[in-house]
């Protein structure tokens, strides 16, 4: 999992080629932390097809807001720099995240 920040978000996500997953999270977001191990598991399985990244929003709040993210958890899929799909809030469950990722494999 690549840790994103203000400096590398553009390079790793917005100008990156191919499919990139961004796990938006924060240390005070319990549902985000509960999802994290499942996302890691899915990375082991599908990491060759999708680039897995995560952004701690407390370190890059403006970057997240720039991506229209103002609530957590958000698991978003970018293709060639465009956000094409994702799951947000209550809808982000182990099942929906798995289905989301499998769509892009």
């Amino acid at each position: 999992m690549i840790e994103l920040n203000k400096e590398n978000f553009e390079e790793e996500v917005l100008t990156a080629e191919g499919t990139v997953l961004v796990d938006f999270w924060s240390p005070s977001c319990e549902p985000c932390k509960a999802l994290m191990p499942h996302v890691h598991e899915l990375e082991e399985k599908h990491g060759d097809k999708i680039k897995f990244t995560s952004l701690d929003i407390t370190k890059a709040r403006r970057v997240a807001i720039g991506q229209k993210v103002m609530g957590l958890p958000v698991i978003a899929i970018y293709q060639n720099g465009e956000r094409v799909d994702g799951v947000v809030g209550d809808e982000a469950t182990t099942k929906s995240v798995k289905e989301l990722i499998e769509k892009f494999c």
């Binding site: 005070s28 977001c29 985000c32 929003i57 709040r61 993210v69 609530g71 957590l72 958890p73 809030g89």
Partner: peptide
């Protein structure tokens, strides 16, 4: 607009609204 301004969890999302 859930996750885009509408929220049900203050500890999750409070920091966005500084």
């Amino acid at each position: 607009l859930t996750g885009r301004g509408v929220s049900y969890c203050a500890t999750c999302d409070g920091a966005f609204f500084e």
